[in-house]
Amino acid sequence: MRNEKDLLQLMNAHFEPLKLEIKRKQNVSVEFKKEELIQALSFLKSHSYRHLSTISCVDWPEEGEFELVYHLFSYDDLINISLKTRIKRDPGIFQTAKEIWPVAEFYERDIHDFFGVKFKGNDNLEELILENWQEIPPMRKDFDTRKFVNDKYEWRDYNGQKHTD
């Protein structure tokens, strides 16, 4: 059973992480270069980190980047580790983790729906939640909710009269 420090040492010994952090008790976060991340995932999986909680995506338009965060948990160490990496917003392509966890296919499809990130190797990126979506992916920070609503729907008051604004 490793503690948080052992885990960070293990990461340091095998990879070149950009940033290591003990967030709080039983919670660790590690930032990787994008080339190393998939390797790190399969390495951790073979070191008892077998539970993939989910994959999160965060949009950082000022930096022109998407941040992908993979949350893993080990039933032996009882530590939650968040593996982060940043990819360019344009074209927004990353590798799939489907070969390591088949369930990742659905998390990736979700991210593809809402952020427009493509995952190489995941050939089934059809729409999961959205249907016939024409606009830019809605969870991106530059998606203007108000403008979308005004363009798409018409406003009506209680008497059923149409009005604009």
Partner: peptide, 27 residues
């Protein structure tokens, strides 16, 4: 940012939350 999780009646329920220091959550 923080990933927090607790045991719901059906298992792990987690939130990944990011703050940029403003009045609203960033993600």
């Amino acid at each position: 940012d923080a990933y927090v999780k607790i045991e719901s009646k059906r298992g792990e329920y987690g939130y990944y939350m990011v703050s940029d220091g403003s009045l609203k959550p960033y993600r």
